[in-house]
Amino acid sequence: MSAPLRNVEYRVLWAAEAISSAGDQLAKVALSILVYHRTGSALWAAVVYALTFLPALAGGLGLSFLADRYPRRAVLSLSAAAQAVLVGLMSVPGMPLAVLCLLLVVVQLAASPANAAQNAITREVFDDDELYLRSQDLRGITTNTVQLLGLAGGGLLVTAVGASWALAIDAVSFAVAAVLVRAWVHNRPAAGGEHSTWFSATRWVFGRRSLRVLIALSWLVGLTVVPEGLAAPLAQQLHAPSAAVGWLLAADPLGFVVGAYLLSKFVSAPQRRRLAGVLATGSSALLALFLLQPNLALALALLALAGALGAYIITVTATFSTWVPNELRGGAGGLYRTGLRVTQGIGVALGGVVAQATGSAVTAIALAGLAGVVLAIPTALCWTRVRHSVAAGTLQ
């Protein structure tokens, strides 16, 4: 597990991402509290929180190609520096709400080329597929651990230091990330150069069946994420205390961390690719067991196990990046991440609609699991055929 950290470049990239992710978790909580206290409107608080996601979708498709067109170290460090300045402005006390929202949109747009550059550089750092996959395991574990810590203490920390100081901490985290990347990541020439244009990677990706199947496997996460959007009504339906909302939200990322660790520790890269379809199906099947009308303890266990099997997504993401040529990796990665976030958003929204229509969060989660199984089985079979064809050299 720790082998990738022996590489200085990766160690810096990992630390920079961990630091900025922790700052982001803090900033999301701070913004929600700040806006709600200023406006007294739950709707405004929700709108501002949504702005932490929506611009990233447009940026993922429209701006990620910059990580191919220009040197990736420059894209990553300049994006982080820009985010540091913008979030620093957001931390100024009394900033008008309209300006705050505008700054937030620009911050999220700047995140898209930075994420694309980060992922592409990491693939450049490791020539060995096994070591690269381990590096992605470590990133996944770190990101979900930061999410858990944010759920556990983000609100308390913001309450203690204040929303403006929390945003200032986020700004500092971006500045630190920019300095680390500039100082220790190698300056490589642009991978794609002038040949990289808007949507060139998108056209290339959708022209390959192997990559289309990998994208389909990733989109299954849109159904397994449904319980996150129903944590509050689920806790109420289970007659659980209000604190159980946090437990239900934490169960999936906690399971994911454990699953990612076990896969990284005990399963080789080829075996993990073989198991990807099975794990994807199993993750949805565990949610389908909500048909049994579980109590709180069983619900937490099912969510944690689904999260553990859901760690298959690390293998899918790493394989996708490996199968895309370096000169298109930034734009292709932006397409992949955008699709993942869109399906998650749609899944949560549909889960809410079903829960409202049926009057039951448990039923909505079970139906999401059943739908996931129905979609996962043919996708897994396609994945098996594609994997064999790629191994035999008969499919791109």
Rank of each mutant, 00 (worst) to 15 (best):
F290E: 01
F256V: 08
A297M: 09
L309K: 01
W219L: 15
V258P: 07
P71L: 10
V257L: 10
L298V: 10
S196V: 08
L263Y: 09
A152R: 03
L61R: 00
Q147M: 15
G277C: 04
G23Y: 08
L86D: 00
L86C: 05
A308M: 09
A276E: 00
L54I: 13
T224C: 04
A120E: 06
W219T: 11
G246E: 05
L238D: 06
A349D: 00
G393S: 09
V226K: 00
L97E: 12
D137P: 00
L43P: 01
P189G: 01
L254M: 13
W383T: 00
A355G: 11
N115M: 13
A175E: 00
T202F: 12
L230G: 03
A171Q: 02
R72F: 12
L138C: 07
V373I: 03
S77L: 03
A114H: 12
L89D: 02
Q118D: 13
D252E: 12
P378S: 07
G59A: 09
A349S: 11
P227V: 04
V8G: 10
G193N: 02
N144A: 05
A120L: 03
S284R: 04
S20Q: 05
P325G: 04
V354I: 14
C101S: 13
L26D: 08
W383C: 01
P241W: 10
A190M: 09
V316P: 04
A301E: 02
F206P: 00
Q136N: 15
V386Y: 12
A288F: 07
L238C: 09
L138A: 11
L381E: 02
S283T: 02
R73W: 11
A244G: 12
E327C: 03
V85Q: 02
V75H: 06
R123Q: 13
I314T: 09
M1K: 02
G155D: 10
R387E: 14
I377L: 15
L13C: 02
V172W: 10
V146A: 06
M1N: 08
T338I: 09
Q293M: 08
A116Y: 10
T145V: 15
G88Y: 04
A368M: 08
A250I: 05
T143W: 14
S112D: 05
V146T: 14
S242Y: 14
G193Y: 04
